[in-house]
Structure formats: C-alpha cells, structure tokens
Simulated assay, not measured.
Amino acid sequence: MDINTTDLFKKTPTEHEVHDLIKNRWSPRTFSDQPVSQKELQVLFEAGRWAPSSSNLQPWNIVWGIKGSEAYDRIMNVLVEFNQKWAKNAPVLLLGVVNTKTAKGDDNYHAPHDLGSFSANMALQAQSMGIAFHQMAGLDFEKAKKEFKFPDTYHVATAIAVGYYGGELSNVPDFLQEAETGERSRKKQNDFVFNGDYRETGDVKEE
C-alpha cells in the first residue's frame, strides 16, 4: 500500500492554533525512496548548531550515516531489534550524543535538554524541507559509545531516522501499521501545566 501525498500529514487535533511546521510534524516509520543528500543534512545540522544551550557549552555531538554506507550499518547495529524492523526504511540514520561534563569536569545536568533543543531545531528545519524525523530511545547506549569511540563522559542519548515523508505501509510490521495511520494524541495541558504548585491534575485558566 502506497502512502499518497494526502496522507503525509496526520490530523493533529490542536486546541490552540500553532505553526504548521509544528502541527504537521510527526514521526513516521515509512519513508520515501527519495534520498537525503549530505548537503541537506548539513542544513539540518546548521539549524541544530544554533539551538540554545546552557552556558553556550553546546554539548551535542552527531554521528550520521546515509543508507548503503558503513556508518549507516554501524548505527543500525546498535539499535534494538524492534527499531531495526522499521528503521531500515530510513535513508539516513543519526545518533545524538552528549558530553555530560563541563570543561572543568563538573556534571552538566543540562546536556540532555540542550541536545533536545538541537534535535528540535533540526526537526523543524527538516519539516520545512518535507523531511521527517523519528527519534528513538531504543538502542544499546553502551554498545554505541564503544562502537563510535566516545569517551566515558559521553552518553549516546538517542537515535534518529531521517527521510522524506512517504513510502509503503507494507514495509512496516503489521503490528505497527495502525500507528502509522491513526490520529495523533497528546495529554491535555491541564495534566502538565501548573500556575503554582504541582497537583495531580493541573488547573490552567485562560486570561
């Protein structure tokens, strides 16, 4: 089954109007056969490069590989089997890595947040180019760190599948196909936004 252009962006039931780059962005497990070039990747990395970071430490590091390359296969080999089943559809795989220490050797507790900002910048830039991102926690972090020779103070925090929207639904395992076509959902703001102390259920009041 081909996913045609009318199906590329899922329905997103926002309760407040947000920018289309945010509204239309989602994380598919199928990708078009259209390749993503190294030049396009450099645009994405440049977008990430200008993300905010605590004390401007910029603790992020990216490992990348285009399908058919040794680097791609090495990244694929550190993913958990569940993600390997569909990530093989992506023309590009990335690893997001952070240095958990400052230059003085102190713990940088903000490093994962900063990598998140880097990744969000990349994802929105990608969306503007018709390119999809699917970020994954399912990888062997220690194996990946050893495989790509990062020092002990570094943590491989995420893997990312990158490619143009599209592809064939049949390339995704049956048990994941419904997730590819279903409506998106999120918690209500009242569940996580607090104008004061934490409560089991938030109370967001419009002003």
Results as ranks from 00 to 15, higher is better:
Met1Gln: 13
Asp2Glu: 15
Asn4Arg: 06
Thr6Glu: 13
Asp7Lys: 11
Asp7Asn: 09
Leu8His: 06
Thr14Arg: 09
Glu15Pro: 03
Glu15Thr: 11
Glu17Arg: 10
Val18Trp: 02
Leu21Gln: 09
Ile22Gln: 07
Lys23Tyr: 04
Ser27Thr: 12
Arg29Met: 11
Phe31Val: 01
Asp33Asn: 15
Gln34Ile: 13
Gln34Asp: 13
Ser37Ile: 05
Ser37Asp: 09
Glu40His: 10
Gln42Gly: 07
Leu44Ile: 05
Phe45Ser: 09
Ala47Tyr: 06
Arg49Asp: 08
Ala51Leu: 02
Pro52Cys: 04
Ser54Thr: 10
Leu57Cys: 00
Gln58Ser: 14
Trp60Ile: 04
Val63Ile: 15
Trp64Thr: 13
Gly65Cys: 06
Ile66Gln: 13
Lys67Met: 10
Gly68Cys: 04
Ser69Thr: 15
Ile75Thr: 07
Met76Lys: 13
Glu81Thr: 14
Trp86Leu: 01
Ala87Tyr: 03
Asn89Gln: 08
Asn89Trp: 02
Pro91Met: 09
Val92Arg: 06
Val92His: 08
Leu95Ser: 02
Leu95Glu: 03
Val97Tyr: 05
Val98Asp: 05
Lys101Gly: 01
Ala103Glu: 14
Ala103Thr: 10
Lys104Ser: 14
Asp106Phe: 04
Tyr109Phe: 07
Ala111Tyr: 00
His113Pro: 06
Ser117Pro: 03
Ala123Ile: 00
Ala126Arg: 02
Ala126Glu: 05
Ser128Lys: 07
Gly130Met: 03
Gly130Leu: 02
Gly130His: 07
Ile131His: 07
Ala132Phe: 04
Ala132Arg: 06
Ala132Asn: 08
Met136Trp: 05
Met136Ser: 00
Met136Phe: 05
Ala137Cys: 01
Phe141Asp: 14
Lys143Glu: 06
Lys145Gln: 07
Lys146Asp: 11
Glu147Ser: 03
Lys149Glu: 14
Lys149Ser: 13
Lys149Asp: 14
Phe150Gln: 02
Val156His: 01
Ala157Ser: 11
Ala157Cys: 12
Ala157Tyr: 08
Thr158His: 00
Ala159Ser: 11
Ile160Arg: 02
Ala161Ile: 09
Gly163Arg: 11
Tyr164His: 15
Tyr165Lys: 00
Gly166Thr: 03
Leu169Asn: 06
Ser170Gln: 13
Pro173Met: 11
Asp174Ala: 15
Phe175Ile: 12
Thr181Arg: 14
Arg184Pro: 00
Ser185Arg: 12
Lys187His: 13
Lys187Val: 09
Gln189His: 10
Tyr198Met: 06
Arg199Lys: 15
Glu200Ile: 15
Thr201Asp: 12
Lys205Trp: 05
Glu207Asn: 08
